[in-house]
């Protein structure tokens, strides 16, 4: 389980994260929802230790983060654009002991990628798929995805959604941030809603449907008055 406990973060004069606490369990897909610019990415980067929180603490399975067990897929590629997919893989193989070339190959095949392509030449959708593949191939216990679907073509989206319901993602803890929920309405186990730097809702999606008959979008409408 990923536990985020009372974290706060200020960017220059803006208090981006007021006081955020929530959990994301292993084996479940948790979605961190919030309108644009409400600090979703900052929270993910904070969990990964890429951005220091001013206050608060993050525990993963009760311990400070172990980069072997958590993979982060930001919403943009983290490799220099002149790298080819092969070079990215070589880098991952060099520095990520748990990187599984076979898993990566399967993902490359599933996403129909061409290893010798340079990142520069790829479309946004393909790039997202490469990033995702590189992240998943680390065979992590927890996978953090920052807006995996934003601004990518429908077919890539479908391929990615399919991936989530496949065995590859089984019993991994997935934490996705997004502001468009309709792509993954049926994939999410738990939703955590963020508004003005605070967690306003944290609920099991199926329970809310069962008890209140409300979809995630409905709850969002109530919360954000979209």
């Amino acid at each position: 389980m990923i536990e985020v406990l009372g974290v706060k973060k200020r960017y220059r004069n803006k208090q981006v994260i007021e006081d955020v606490s929530f959990t994301a369990n292993k084996g479940e897909i948790t979605c961190l929802i919030g309108l644009n610019g409400t600090g979703k990415s900052t929270i993910l980067k904070g969990i990964m230790g890429l951005t220091p929180f001013d206050q608060g603490n993050v525990l993963i399975d009760g311990k400070p983060i172990d980069l072997n067990t958590v993979a982060f897929v930001p919403d943009h590629s983290t490799f220099p654009i002149h790298f080819s997919i092969e070079q990215c893989e070589a880098f991952m193989r060099d520095f990520y002991p748990k990187f599984d070339p076979k898993l990566f190959a399967r993902l490359v095949d599933e996403f129909k990628l061409f290893p010798e392509d340079k990142l520069r030449e790829l479309s946004k959708g393909t790039l997202a798929k490469v990033n995702l593949a590189l992240g998943i191939a680390q065979d992590p216990d927890y996978l953090l995805l920052d807006e995996p679907f934003s601004g990518i073509d429908v077919f890539s989206k479908e391929q990615i959604v399919e991936l989530f319901s496949s065995d590859i993602m089984e019993d991994r803890g997935v934490l996705i941030t997004t502001h468009e929920i309709d792509d993954i309405e049926y994939l999410v186990d738990k939703a955590v809603m963020l508004n003005r730097g605070r967690i306003v809702r944290e609920f099991d999606v199926e329970d809310v449907r069962f008890i209140h008959g409300k979809s995630i979008v409905d709850v969002m409408r109530e919360e954000y008055g979209a």
Partner: peptide, 15 residues
């Protein structure tokens, strides 16, 4: 440099 900061990758290397 750029939005795709290689530093993010470097900082998540498990060493």
């Amino acid at each position: 440099q750029g939005r795709g900061m290689f530093m993010m990758r470097l900082l998540t290397i498990p060493t």
